[in-house]
Design a protein around this nucleic acid. Structure first.
Length: 920
RNA sequence: GCGGAGGUAGCGAAGUGGUCAAACGUGCCAGGUUUAGGCCCUGGUGGCUUAGUGCCUUCGCAGGUUCGAAUCCUGCCCUCCGCACCA
């Protein structure tokens, strides 16, 4: 019967909600607290969320079924600039943005409202809540909240967090390069760019060459090549100026002056300087002291650097090409050796006639090669033998006249269509993640943290090690004001590190008047401070109880892209703020969702929202499908066909369970071997799926606990010829339904109800395996029988027999079994066939020829040796017992005969557990 | 470039020194039932073989260690995640 999954889903969701099934409060039961990063609410939840969140929900449901008091809360993130920017775009009538909203199904009249960022936040958090409920998430919604100052309580919590961090010395202020729009006079994030997404400030160095009283500032990314400078390039077509920079007089291209101004240099243009004068200068290499001439070259451009270029012809294709053209008769100076190369790549490949595009390519090639395998040559004095990147760092550190300079990695254009520049701001606030001691604390927190999967650990360690100070404030966007400097908003990754603690009190704190919510109150709740005056004691104490009961978080699960930032920040901040007993207990990571092997993207047209798939396939089917497709940090590849097939499987299980369950009392009955085999398999499946669930290996759990169990059940039904044991069948039906419940909770509730079981299956206990029922010895008979069926099929196929009249199974004589068992032992000791044969022949005199043939075969390929060879008598019994079954399978008489009694030439082929087969 | 994870059948993916031609899922082929069904059942799905339960070849590429390697070692190629003020 077709099951109406959607109707079932709605009905049970309502029952759960009406009975507050997932609302959890502090108690004396063991607790399990699981969280996942809240989504940013600038759109609908999509396929990626279906995976991450169902992993959390499946674990929550499983732990609940293991008797834990489980808290699974959920909230919404509004902090940051994208929503702000999007709202502004709507206000400006930007067609792309408006279209995006239309595609989400909003009517023209509604779109108007999206001019207000608050409307985005409210709309999409509500939509997400609807979608998640329809997806069957077992969330305690009482504890849900929004971030930013839209929510005064969360806002105060974040202020407390930052005041605490500051008091602990975790926050500093300093210089920082940012991408800057000169017109808007502010930083420009990726979201606010019309061009240049992903471009960042790159670190260059300005090396100051002295030329009399003047300074020629050469901007370079490769200061280690200073030893090879043969001349300075300027472009006579550019306009050059003298500029007073930090008290010195520099010469540079006019366009470059503002760059310096933006990078914390005091600049004052003194006047222009002509090419003739420039070309007459002689510059002093600050590293070597040698004097080099200034020459002209057309490739010098003022967009990059200063318009003054140091020329290293041996290692820079543009320089060498220009030098060839200049006919100056200067020879390149080699600074870097590459093993296996007698002459620098540049000198080998560059011709006078090389075009700009070729030179561009070559530059990249040279850079990569020399960066990777180059070492400094002898000429580099104390730096010789060093790898180039190391030499670079040391040279810059040693040279007073080398100063940092930033250049964009590529052109960036602001949303206001103004080209952007790099600006060094000096009042940026940082979280001091570079602090060695803080790193050590984070590493310690990691140590006591269970990771799912464990192989994440190396990456976390690297991130902790390499993490630098994090700029934690922004000048615009939504969020919480930095408490002591309200020009700044706290940046979005920084206001979402310890908020799982807020879940523990979110539903209670709203009962207090806002003005009573102070830092002191948070100290009381989270840090055992004293109760501030005028605060309702019972609420405050409840909050403290909730926090100390639920904390720490037992598992936090997210997509793998958050390891490198959010999850690591999460560790850092917990160590800074909370007592060690509250540090995270577990972190779990999952891969991304691909659709038909491709990354999901709106432009590819394969973008699916959560509500799309749930609408198409139903919650249970999506949940089970997406979890069955992958685990670990691997990506899962969504295919609709998988979901269709999962739909059928679930439907079939519903029918089977409801039709075959005997809810009346079952009389005890004697169990046959096949019944005990079924119990054995059932308990194996229970054991394996339970273990997998605990490790969040849901695909394994589904395979062991669903696919495998179903296969075994099918075999059991066949083997028991339509007369399965009622009690065994009942146990299978109960266990299978319970095992499926964390994945397909709605359907399983419905089955549970139809089985006339009390209460929610969500609150029932997950099956526990009974070790005494597990007995691998029970498997040999069934394995023999299924193997025989396979072999007979193969014989029939090869012999082109479609409908056999008679099948004979000729069972190997006991001496062969004995031979196998003894050979097995000997073959472990030696690979010498002769030795083994010699040892065995005396006991198998009558079969000496066969023995030597078999032994040499087995020595050559031990996998051919039957393991745990059956005894003739047992094999005859197993096969005889299955005769009726075989008859049903093949539709003909099946005879079981000892091979030694058969005249048939095939009889000799019989081996233990592999009877000879005669098909007629 | 740097750090991390990977490359096994059409696809997804088990398997980490011999029992693995490779579980399980999906797809595909053939047959049955049904003959509206995204239902169900049976067999097959690397190549060769076709009275026979066998043989051969594969686990990104190239070498090496071993009686024996998808599994260990070396080099190379490719894919994915992240690389910061962005959620």
């Amino acid at each position: 019967m077709p099951v109406d999954f959607k109707e079932i889903s709605k009905r049970w969701q309502k029952k759960w909600s009406d009975s507050k099934a997932f609302e959890a409060d502090a108690s004396d039961r063991p607790k399990f607290f699981i969280t996942t990063p809240y989504p940013y609410v600038n759109g609908l939840l999509h396929m990626g969320h279906t995976y991450t969140y169902v992993r959390v929900d499946a674990l929550a449901r499983f732990k609940r079924m293991c008797g834990f008091n489980v808290l699974f809360p959920f909230a919404f993130h509004a902090t940051g600039s994208p929503i702000d920017t999007a709202a502004r775009k709507v206000a400006e009538g930007e067609p792309g943005q408006i279209n995006a909203l239309k595609l989400m199904g909003f009517k023209d009249s509604e779109i108007e409202k999206f001019k207000d960022p608050l409307h985005w936040v409210k709309t999409f958090s509500q939509e997400a809540k609807k979608d998640l409920s329809a997806y069957g998430m077992s969330i305690d919604w009482r504890r849900s909240f929004l971030t930013t100052d839209l929510n005064p309580f969360y806002d105060k919590f974040i202020r407390w967090q930052f005041n605490t961090l500051r008091a602990e010395g975790r926050i500093g202020q300093g210089e920082h390069p940012v991408v800057w729009c000169p017109k808007e006079d502010g930083p420009v994030g990726d979201h606010a760019r019309s061009e240049g997404e992903g471009e960042v400030p790159e670190e260059w160095v300005i090396v100051k060459f002295k030329a009399g009283d003047l300074i020629l500032p050469c901007a370079t990314k490769r200061p280690e090549t200073l030893f090879g400078v043969t001349n300075i390039w300027i472009n006579p077509d550019l306009e050059y100026v003298r500029v007073r920079v930090d008290g010195e007089v520099w010469v540079l291209a006019k366009q470059a002056v503002s760059k310096l101004g933006n990078q914390k240099h005091a600049v004052d243009v003194l006047g222009s300087i002509g090419p003739d004068e420039l070309l007459s200068l002689e510059a002093e290499n600050p590293l070597t002291g040698s004097k080099v001439p200034v020459l002209s070259a057309g490739f010098v451009n003022a967009e990059k650097g200063t318009g003054v270029v140091m020329s290293v012809p041996a290692h820079a294709p543009f320089d060498f090409a220009a030098l060839l053209r200049s006919k100056a008769g200067i020879s390149p100076i080699q600074v870097i050796d590459v093993p296996g190369r007698s002459k620098p790549l540049t000198l080998e490949l560059v011709k006078e006639s090389s075009g700009d595009a070729d030179l561009e390519k070559l530059t990249r090639k040279v850079y990569l090669e020399e960066e990777k395998s180059g070492v400094m040559s002898k000429i580099a004095g104390k730096y010789s033998e060093l790898p180039v990147s190391k030499a670079r760092d040391e040279i810059v550190a040693d040279l007073d006249c080398a100063i940092p300079f930033y250049e964009l990695s590529g052109p960036v254009v602001c949303r206001c269509l103004t080209p952007c520049v790099v600006r060094v701001v000096d009042d940026q606030w940082f979280l001091k993640y570079s602090d060695f001691e803080w790193k050590q604390e984070a590493a310690k927190a990691l140590e006591s943290c269970k990771l799912y999967p464990e192989k994440l650990r190396d990456q976390f360690l690297h991130v902790i090690d390499w993490l630098k100070d994090w700029a934690c404030t922004r000048e615009f966007g939504l969020g919480t004001d930095l408490p002591w400097d309200e020009k700044w908003k706290i940046e979005s990754l920084s206001d979402s590190t310890i908020y799982p603690a807020f879940y523990t009190i979110a539903h209670l704190i709203e009962g207090l008047p806002e003005d009573k919510v102070t830092d002191k109150l948070f100290d009381f709740i989270f840090k055992d401070g004293s109760l501030p005056e005028g605060v309702d004691r019972s609420i405050a104490e409840d909050m403290r109880t909730e926090f100390s009961y639920w904390y720490p978080v037992d598992v936090r699960n997210s997509g793998k892209d958050l390891v490198q930032n959010h999850l690591t920040f999460y560790l850092f901040n917990h160590t800074a703020i909370f007592d060690e007993k509250y540090w995270p207990r577990g972190i779990s990571v999952n891969g991304h969702v691909l659709i038909n092997g491709e990354k999901m993207s709106k432009s590819k047209g394969n973008f699916k929202t959560l509500r799309d798939v749930v609408g198409e396939f139903s919650a249970d089917v999506v949940r089970l499908s997406v979890l069955s497709l992958g685990e670990d940090a691997n990506d899962v590849d969504w295919h609709d066909e998988v979901a269709s097939s999962m739909h059928s499987k679930l439907n079939a299980w519903y029918d089977f369970a409801v039709e075959n369950y005997a809810s009346e009392h079952i009389q005890s009955e004697a169990l046959r071997a096949v019944d005990r085999w079924m119990e054995h398999k059932l308990h194996e499946c229970i054991r394996d799926s339970r273990t997998a669930m605990d490790e969040m290996l849901f695909r394994t759990a589904i395979q062991r606990g669903f696919f495998d169990l179903q296969r075994h059940l099918k075999w059991y039904l066949k083997r028991s010829s339509g007369k399965p044991s009622r009690s065994v069948l009942n146990k299978v039906i109960e266990a299978q339904t319970l095992i499926l419940a964390p994945f397909a909770p709605h359907l399983c509730e419905e089955i549970w109800f139809k089985l006339e079981r009390e209460g929610f299956i969500s609150a029932a206990l997950y099956p526990v395996h009974d070790e005494s029922k597990i007995n691998p010895a029970l498997e040999s008979s069934e394995r023999l029988i299924s193997q025989v069926i396979d072999d007979v099929h193969q014989v029939m196929r090869l012999a082109k027999v479609e409908k056999p009249n008679r099948i004979q199974l000729l069972v190997a004589p006991d001496w062969k079994g004995e031979l196998c068992r003894r050979a097995e032992k000997l073959i472990r000791q030696t690979r010498n066939a002769g030795e083994i044969i010699k040892a065995l022949i005396p006991d198998f005199k009558e079969h000496s020829k066969e023995v030597s043939a078999l032994i040499s075969k087995w020595v050559k390929d031990p996998s051919k040796l039957p393991e745990n060879a059956a005894h003739e008598e047992a094999e005859l019994k197993d096969l005889n017992d299955a005769r009726e079954f075989f008859k049903g399978v093949f539709g003909c008489i099946v005879e079981v005969i000892p091979a030694r009694e058969s005249e048939h030439p095939k009889a000799r082929n019989a081996m233990p557990s592999k009877p000879a087969i005669v098909v007629e």
